[in-house]
């Protein structure tokens, strides 16, 4: 289990992340939603180990993150960044291979092939990473992160993703998120920051709604996706509809031409 308890982080006395507690179980997708500047990315960096929190703790399978070396941490969690740049002309295969840098495994070629397959990038493997389109780059980065935790281990692993679908078209967004869904059976827990509410509604098992550095609501999709809760979190009128085909909830938002208390402040 990935467990964050009472994580607190301040910059110049101002709390950015305030007492956030949540859990990610293996085989589960937890989506983090919230308006810009809510502290999602800071919280994400605390979970990934890039920065350490001043109060509270983050535990991977019961071990506190601060007690784990970079190498040990890499064996339980992989991170997919929002977007990354590679300044030298590496091929896709070279980029994905790097995911295995701190792994001792004999099946590396098999792992790489499986991951390239799962992310539908095997046809790209000899291309130069920088020459790929945005969607292809994201899938390669996903492959690179995945290969790190792909091999079955006696303990669960975790994948953290920071807005993996931003700047992708609809088909690519769904391509990335359906890959995540397939991971659930591999004893991998997934935490993903999403911008697009509808993607969370369709793919997440649990949603944590964050505003002003604190969790406003956490629970199943049905529990959190509630018009009032979302309107308050995003300061914008929101309508929830039911998709007639799937029966799943569907978030509709429009320009705030009818007045609500929250939005009239902006006018």
């Amino acid at each position: 289990m990935l467990q964050a308890s009472k994580v607190h982080f301040c910059i110049k006395q101002r709390p950015i992340v305030e007492q956030i507690s949540l859990e990610v179980n293996p085989g589960e997708i937890l989506a983090i939603l919230g308006p810009n500047g809510a502290g999602k990315s800071t919280f994400f960096k605390i979970l990934s180990g890039d920065i350490s929190c001043k109060h509270g703790s983050v535990k991977y399978n019961g071990k506190t993150i601060t007690s784990l070396k970079a190498k040990d941490l890499a064996s339980v969690r992989a991170v997919m960044p929002q977007h990354s740049q590679v300044n030298f002309p590496f091929t896709v295969q070279e980029v994905v291979e790097l995911g295995l840098i701190s792994t001792q495994t004999k099946n590396s070629s098999q792992l790489i092939n499986e991951v390239l397959n799962a992310t539908n990038t095997d046809h790209l493997k000899d291309r130069i990473f920088n020459s790929l389109s945005g969607g292809e780059k994201q899938r390669v980065q996903l492959a690179r992160a995945l290969v790190q935790i792909w091999e079955s281990k006696p303990f669960p692993r975790y994948l953290l993703l920071d807005e993996p679908s931003s700047s992708l078209d609809i088909a690519q967004q769904h391509a990335v998120l359906s890959i995540l869904q397939k991971l659930k059976s591999r004893n991998i827990g997934i935490l993903v920051i999403l911008h697009e509410l509808n993607l969370a509604a369709q793919y997440a098992d649990k949603i944590a709604l964050i505003k002003n550095g604190a969790i406003t609501k956490i629970g199943t999709v049905e529990e959190v996706l509630d018009e009032k809760t979302l309107e308050r979190a995003f300061d914008h009128p929101i309508q929830l509809l039911k998709n007639p085909n799937t029966g799943r909830l569907f978030v509709a938002s429009a320009a705030p031409f009818y007045s609500s208390l929250a939005t009239s402040k902006l006018a």
Partner: peptide, 12 residues
Amino acid sequence: ALGEQEAFHMGV
């Protein structure tokens, strides 16, 4: 080369 943060995530 992928980024210092990414390198850390990969266990470097």
